[in-house]
């Protein structure tokens, strides 16, 4: 989870030139991150796309 989109050319360098494997990325601005935390406390936002992304993560 990143606060803003990473630089595309830098990601291409990591993957295509350096041969690194990057994880799946999800962009969430900080104020949205804090709002998500508050909603999770009160259960106001049960279907946030980040939750589905995490549930589908191959790391699980």
């Amino acid at each position: 989870m990143l606060e803003s989109e990473p630089d595309e050319s830098l990601c291409r360098y990591f993957e295509d030139v350096a041969g690194l494997v990057l994880p799946e990325r999800f962009v969430l601005p900080h104020h949205h991150y804090l709002a998500l935390g508050r909603s999770l406390e009160t259960n106001e936002m049960p279907d946030h796309p980040l939750i589905e992304t995490l549930k589908d993560s191959p790391a699980l």
Binding site: Y33, L34, L36, G37, L40, E41, L50, I51, L54, K55
Partner: peptide, 10 residues
């Protein structure tokens, strides 16, 4: 708190 709640939810 947010990360902890996210972990619990997922």
């Amino acid at each position: 708190d947010t990360l902890t709640r996210l972990a619990r939810r997922t």
